[in-house]
C-alpha cells in the first residue's frame, strides 16, 4: 500500500471540516472539526465508518476516476 492508495486519496472519503460538522450532530457544541486532534480523519461513505486518512482497503478508487455514489 502506498500513500497514494490511502483513504485520503479515495473517492469514498470525505474530510472537509464543514462536512464533518454537518454529519455529526452536536460536534460544534463542545468541540470542532477544525481542531488539531482530528488530524485529517474523515468519513468513509463506502464502509460507513469514521476513519484515519492513512487507512486503506480493497475498495479504494482514485478520486480522478470519478464518483458513482
Amino acid at each position: 500500500m502506498s500513500n497514494r492508495d490511502a483513504c485520503l486519496g479515495c473517492g469514498h472519503f470525505r474530510n472537509r471540516p464543514a462536512d464533518i460538522e454537518a454529519a455529526m450532530p452536536g460536534l460544534t457544541s463542545l468541540g470542532s472539526a477544525y481542531n488539531s486532534a482530528r488530524g485529517d480523519d474523515g468519513l468513509c461513505l463506502k464502509h460507513g465508518r469514521y476513519i484515519d486518512a492513512r487507512a486503506w482497503c480493497a475498495d479504494f478508487f482514485a478520486i480522478a476516476t470519478g464518483l458513482t455514489l
Partner: peptide, 12 residues
C-alpha cells in the same frame, strides 16, 4: 468531544 472523534477515527 475532541477525544471521542479522535479515538473513533483511530479505531475505525
Amino acid at each position: 468531544v475532541s477525544a471521542s472523534i479522535a479515538i473513533a477515527a483511530a479505531v475505525g
